[in-house]
Write a protein that binds this DNA or RNA. Structure first.
Lengths: 211, 211
DNA sequence: CCGCCTATTGGCGGATCCGCCAATTTCCAA
DNA sequence: TTGGAAATTGGCGGATCCGCCAATAGGCGG
């Protein structure tokens, strides 16, 4: 009732760092459980390759030139909602984790993971499980909860970041300066910031804003 | 007058991403010109290994837990000012490049470099040359020049980031609120920001501030 | 159908910001 | 030594911010 050599798990690697991809291919390629069927260094290419190869599991980086990893993930899940994708990235920002999971990621590991743990994670993902380290889970629950901004608030924060006044923000968004101010108040409260400068800082720290 | 197999260039790899290190070791290990003599995933370990092996070239990542790459670089150059170090990192922030070069890096390449280019860069470094891509050079000259903050101004910006008012900043730094305000004015001008919120944003964008 | 959340707008007032002007001292580099 | 940049402090005033209070309207899930 047990095959000594089951079919390997077919993998698609997506990362814009060639050396990193080489590392993944090397580390995983040595394990007979895995087979790297394709690699891509941007979202567009990844989509095409995914469609052609239909890998069992996709390893996806978030920060890439062009279409980012989250968008790529959404597009893949749009084609096949059962696609299994493991996010493998350097960012441990709450927003990135949250967006990835919301977009349908089956797991999220940071790049400082050890090779053996990565392999184990892929097996778990392929078996239908979820992967999210205790550390990341803790980050998500403790540091967050009520303090995630609405899309409108994120929009306002983006303008604050550019140095616009409440009045200007109001005109830019077609709303009253009063309303912009109200959003600002909510942002300050949610981000636990004492003024707009601190709010922008918190935005970068949490990953809401990106350099 | 030409040896067919010269002694390989002895390398120390420092990066806190195990898979990335595997990639480097794999990519470079296949080339007989190179020999990976040691690997480290943090600055302290790197220092010890560097001292024991005295590699020809050190590949150093900037963002690491504990002592960061720049500090590690400084410590190495302190022991041996002729040590040759190539920064290999994901960050293309002006501040990181500037600090790395000032700390004595012989070269700076981002992780999206192709394997062949990385190998070539290492050879150049080992031969006594400098490596800095045209793209990064352009970034350094165009976007910068006069707009690098003084240490005092960076100190102030760090407090602004935390939401302190000019008055509070003055007291925290043991100076007058007037002076804090003056620094703020200079910061705004140098960073081309219209208010402190935008200044904080620019700080993160340029790499002066880090998440 | 009824709360709850979100978006919206309004008034009021004290706190804070930022620009423009000018001055002194220190310290480094040419 | 001398010029210049950096750090420091001061005054003045209009613009802007942010807190506290309150209200309306639309949407969504229980």
């Amino acid at each position: 009732m047990s095959a000594p050599t089951p079919a390997p798990i077919r993998l698609l690697l997506v990362d814009d760092h060639p050396v990193m991809r080489a590392g993944m291919a090397n580390v995983l390629g040595l394990d007979p459980d895995f087979e790297v069927v394709a690699q891509a260094d941007d979202g567009e290419t990844a989509l095409g390759l995914w469609d052609r190869h239909r890998p069992d599991v996709t390893l996806l980086d978030i920060s890439m030139g062009g279409m980012d990893g989250i968008d790529t993930l959404r597009r893949i899940r749009q084609v096949d909602p059962s696609a299994r994708v493991l996010i493998l990235t350097s960012s441990d920002a709450n927003e990135d984790i949250r967006h990835a999971l919301k977009a349908g990621a089956c797991g999220y590991v940071t790049k400082n993971v050890r090779a053996s743990e990565l392999a184990e994670a892929i097996r778990t993902i392929h078996a239908g499980g979820q992967i999210l380290s205790e550390e990341l889970k803790r980050k998500l629950t403790e540091d967050d909860g009520s303090r995630h901004l609405t899309s409108r608030e994120i929009e306002v924060l983006g303008l604050v970041r550019q140095g616009f006044t409440n009045d200007e923000i109001g005109r830019l968004l077609g709303i009253s300066e009063r309303t912009a101010r109200a959003h600002m108040g909510t942002i300050l409260e949610k981000l636990n910031a004492s003024d707009r400068a601190a709010a922008v800082a918190r935005g970068f720290e949490t990953g809401i804003l990106k350099a």
